[in-house]
């Protein structure tokens, strides 16, 4: 893998090129914060790009900000998961490819809140950018195993009581700050269902019951759209295990529709298309 400093230098070079050759108005990347860790940042000139960094603390999904600045021509750093997010957003008509200059690089993985390589990264199968205009050459993280899938398989083999106990414990931690939603590039709805009070779809009360409805609804809205970048899981201040729900949902989509989100430009989201041979067991039996 490329040394972090070299990677940062190469990203800076390409970013400056995007300003001079491609005429981007701003660049979405990372810079060092007061705590010495990297944080998302918006650079408005090639001089500002001197502050650009990438390190294993760069766990914020920048595609989120691409959506925010979609009326501008922007440059954006993207490894596998961020580029996949961009692909989903492009496929959903949320971004304009001509307005994006994608600086791709192979990903070495980012740390979770516990200081360990994040579970999304240890299960990552796509460290390299899917779409890009520039590319830093090299190899990224390579995983032989998929620990998240193993966790899901393991939970699936448990009894209903055990499954529920695990789920309930995770849900009871949630404080409903919506950091998961806000850090997710796919959660771009202008008005989220929990922000409507006429009718009040969901009580604000942060108890296990309401939190379960919140999290399950969000995960369901991400079906066939989630690229498992793990930004929501890393954003959660309460360490709710969102990755296992996401992994389960992605596994279902893969098994039912043979689909993984964000791998091809021009793909239709799995739940937006109908094929005659789509599985239909969930409709229930005739006459039942």
């Amino acid at each position: 893998m490329i040394p972090i400093d070299t990677l940062t230098e190469q990203l800076k070079e390409l970013a400056k090129k995007a300003f001079s050759a491609d005429g981007i108005e701003l660049l979405i990347g990372y810079q060092k914060g007061e705590d010495g860790k990297s944080k998302p940042a918006v650079f408005r000139s090639s001089e500002e790009v001197e502050k650009l960094v990438w390190d294993n603390q760069s766990g914020f999904n920048l595609a989120n900000l691409a959506h925010r600045f979609r009326d501008k021509k922007v440059g954006i750093l993207a490894q596998g998961c961020i580029s996949r997010s961009l692909v989903v957003l492009l496929n959903e008509g949320q971004l304009n490819r001509n307005q994006l200059v994608i600086i791709g690089f192979p990903c070495q993985g980012v740390l979770g809140r516990d200081g360990q390589l994040h579970s999304a990264c240890t299960s990552c199968q796509y460290p390299d950018p899917i779409v890009k205009d520039y590319q830093v050459e090299g190899t990224g993280i390579s995983n032989q195993k998929d620990p998240l899938l193993e966790l899901v398989n393991n939970i699936e083999s448990q009894s209903m009581e055990e499954k529920y106990a695990f789920f309930a414990k995770e849900m009871s931690k949630c404080i409903r700050c919506y950091a998961c939603r806000q850090s997710c590039p796919m959660c771009y709805c202008d008005v989220c269902f929990v922000d409507i009070n006429k009718p009040l779809w969901l009580a604000r009360t942060p108890d296990q019951q309401n939190n379960s409805v919140w999290n399950l609804t969000r995960i369901n809205h991400l079906t066939g759209r989630c690229v498992a970048c793990g930004a929501c899981d890393r954003a959660c201040p309460e360490n709710v295990n969102l990755m296992y729900l996401i992994a389960k949902m992605n596994k279902e989509v893969k098994e039912l529709f043979g689909y993984s989100a964000g791998l091809h430009l021009g793909d239709k989201p799995a739940l937006n298309t109908f094929q005659p041979n789509d599985p239909d067991f969930f409709w229930g039996k005739e006459g039942a």
Partner: peptide
């Protein structure tokens, strides 16, 4: 520029007290 408008800062702030009634 990079604020997500989530509620982490306020929910965890010892001085924030805003509430909703339902």
């Amino acid at each position: 520029a990079t604020c997500l408008a989530c509620g982490v800062c306020t929910f965890l702030c010892p001085a924030c007290y805003c509430f909703d009634i339902q």
